[in-house]
Amino acid sequence: MKSMLTRGPVKIEAVITPLIDIAMLLVVFFALVSQIGITDFVKLNLPKPSPTAAVAPHNEPRIVINAIANEQGEVSAWRFLNDDYLADPAGIQSLCNAVTASIRANPAAEVHLRADSNVKYTYISPVLDQVGKAATKAIPGHLVKLRLAVQPEHRGG
């Protein structure tokens, strides 16, 4: 009894510093991941060639162009770096200028083209043409590393 009294009242302290550390880390992490998601990935029903000759993505820098299309396969706009470009000649020219600037800044970058499986080729063709020209315009003699995004069937979705 005596020893209990000499020990004095027990203090309960919550150590919140590690909690704050982890909370901040998670906030920063989620912010970055969501930003990457918004910039690069638009939810699309990609083509599913089977069996596919496609390869898994590498860690190389990338430039992602997404086709924003309706159910009839008509592209209304092209999304590139959070900007939407109309699918008309002027819009595609603006897209080409933006891609040119990106390739000039990062010549090693791959250009990833993501389009819905039902998009009509008439909308894709001018972009394929302009992306090739953008690479040459950015750096004379430069060949664009164009990659066509597909969804492997074995992974579901």
Partner: peptide, 11 residues
Amino acid sequence: TLDREEFLRTD
């Protein structure tokens, strides 16, 4: 979620 697509190389 993010890495389930693959790519066809055109070069």
